[in-house]
């Protein structure tokens, strides 16, 4: 991976983190966290850590589902 791709995927991580901080609706925060996790994956693949990648890719949605269970049904902004 050369510098251009590192800048592209690193920019994806930074965009996801900033959007997570800025957004106010909890559902929008979760979607932006998905953006952040998406930016991490190519770096793991570049280092050859494919098993770590598969584990991370399965753990991240499961944690999102637990957060959704804690959010409940009426957490939406009116």
């Amino acid at each position: 991976m050369n510098e251009i791709f590192a800048v592209i995927y690193g920019g994806l991580i930074v965009l996801g983190a900033l959007a997570t901080m800025v957004s106010r609706d909890p559902f929008n925060k979760l979607i932006s966290l998905g953006l952040l996790v998406a930016g991490v994956m190519p770096f793991l693949s570049d280092r050859g850590l494919l098993d770590v990648l598969a584990a991370t890719a399965l753990i991240a949605p499961l944690s999102t589902i637990f957060v959704l269970m804690a959010l409940g049904r009426d957490a939406r902004e009116p």
Partner: peptide
């Protein structure tokens, strides 16, 4: 790994 990431993302 790619299939695991894709299925996890759609499930989310």
């Amino acid at each position: 790994a790619a299939a695991a990431y894709f299925v996890g993302s759609t499930f989310e």
